[in-house]
Amino acid sequence: MVDVVNRESEPIRVLVAKVGLDGHDRGVKVVARALRDAGMEVIYTGLHRTPEEVVATAIQEDVDVIGISLLSGAHMTLFPQIIELLKRHDAQDRHVLVGGGVIPEEDAAALKKMGVHEILGQDTPPATLVERVRELAIAQRIRA
């Protein structure tokens, strides 16, 4: 049988997680729903996750994209931890890291330099978010 390898048509898998002391999950649920409605498989892990749990989950679930929602202001502490853990597990080339929530522009620029692929703030329209996630996931699969 001829096997058609077309990784672009495989469903995109996204982990969406709330990290740290941040109980605001309305936004992340809206994001999860928008991604689902765009045909993606969304793994939601609930509130108060640690960076270690997020990375272990992303590896087991083999997600294309890790979406971290932060409204607590702790992004400059938590993202570097996640990036460090991904490197330690040799997984930084396997997953796209995207941040969302309330993140000031200057911090967003710094985070991108550190290795966060994209920051999508709280004012991003769902359609834009979905398109950006899809672009990043497909680009990642082509690189991998």
Binding site: E41, I43, T45, G46, T57
Partner: peptide, 30 residues
């Protein structure tokens, strides 16, 4: 979803206590 083909896989929410245990592997499937 029968409409979009997408899915919310939320079973892990209840299983987070095992996230860092090497002796437990959890995989969500749609």
């Amino acid at each position: 979803s029968s409409l979009s083909g997408g899915a919310i896989l939320g079973d892990r929410i209840r299983m987070q206590e095992h996230a860092l245990d090497d002796g437990v592997f959890v995989r969500s499937m749609s």
